[in-house]
Write a protein that binds this DNA or RNA. Structure first.
Lengths: 137, 137
DNA sequence: AAATGTAATGATAACCGTTATCATTATCGT
DNA sequence: ACGATAATGATAACGGTTATCATTACATTT
């Protein structure tokens, strides 16, 4: 096997700093378009391509996290403990949760199949408390 | 809230039967393009749009299952017990596994947040036994 | 401070999986 | 067989994302 590893300096430019600040300022889960829109609204000048590149650069540096939903990727702050997500299919609300036992059992299940885990993603779908009530009316 | 439910007959046409037979004949996880290619290879005449429509029709009837990966959707036989997936990022191999305790804990975690679960998807990423060995060489 | 090398930017084209459109064909119940 | 309606297939369109490329910004060296 031939492995080539190319490394280069990642620059934390003004645009990337702005993206990082925006994401760090809340607990929201942002898609690329929302980030671009929010930054432009504050008067910043940033192209959509720069947002996409900035988001993946920041993620590869571990400065932000992401979850891959069916249609798009969403980014969130990285300075939180590991957690998974529940997505309300009614209103889009995303709730976070973490469960050490589930994590441990996943690791054990992988090991049993000979897998060396590098990551996982657990997304649960359903109706949040609010949407659940509206369904009953 | 206004809810409109429109129901109509779903026809099991020759094309859809061919898709169903193909998927039922193995344990593979097919994407739409692979299905179309495989059917055309057997001499069948089927358009890619028909494959997409057939796949979602069959899934909505519970005749096949699917998993949503980052880039595309993959379909598999439905006549298996519920299970989740481990995807090898080295070779693309998909391994299935099931774990009742994890399922139960998920349900409990959702309930604690007030969520009424409708489904979930757990995908674990890593290296399968074979790719793991190649990494060490 | 000027020059140099390199990564980032931004506008836009391209990409890829998927869905919509629409005229035509096939299917099912009667 | 007839009539109603769903399915088909070719292709356009869509939406999120990535590639292209000329230009700009940055850090390091002279």
């Amino acid at each position: 096997m031939i492995t080539v590893i190319i490394t280069f300096m990642q620059k934390l430019t003004a645009q990337r700093q702005a993206i990082l600040d925006l994401i760090n300022a809340s607990n929201r889960h942002w898609d690329a378009d929302e980030v671009a829109r929010a930054l432009v609204d504050t008067g910043a000048s940033i192209g959509i391509a720069t947002v996409y590149r900035g988001l993946s650069a920041l993620e590869s540096q571990g400065l932000i996290d992401s979850i891959q939903l069916a249609d798009k990727k969403r980014y969130e702050r990285a300075d939180k403990a590991h957690h998974d997500h529940m997505v309300c299919t009614g209103c889009g609300h995303i709730e976070e949760f973490s469960h050490d036992t589930i994590e441990a059992l996943q690791e054990a299940a992988a090991e049993k199949k000979g897998f060396k885990l590098t990551g996982h993603q657990l997304v649960m779908f359903g109706f949040c408390r609010k949407c659940r009530q509206e369904l009953d009316t």
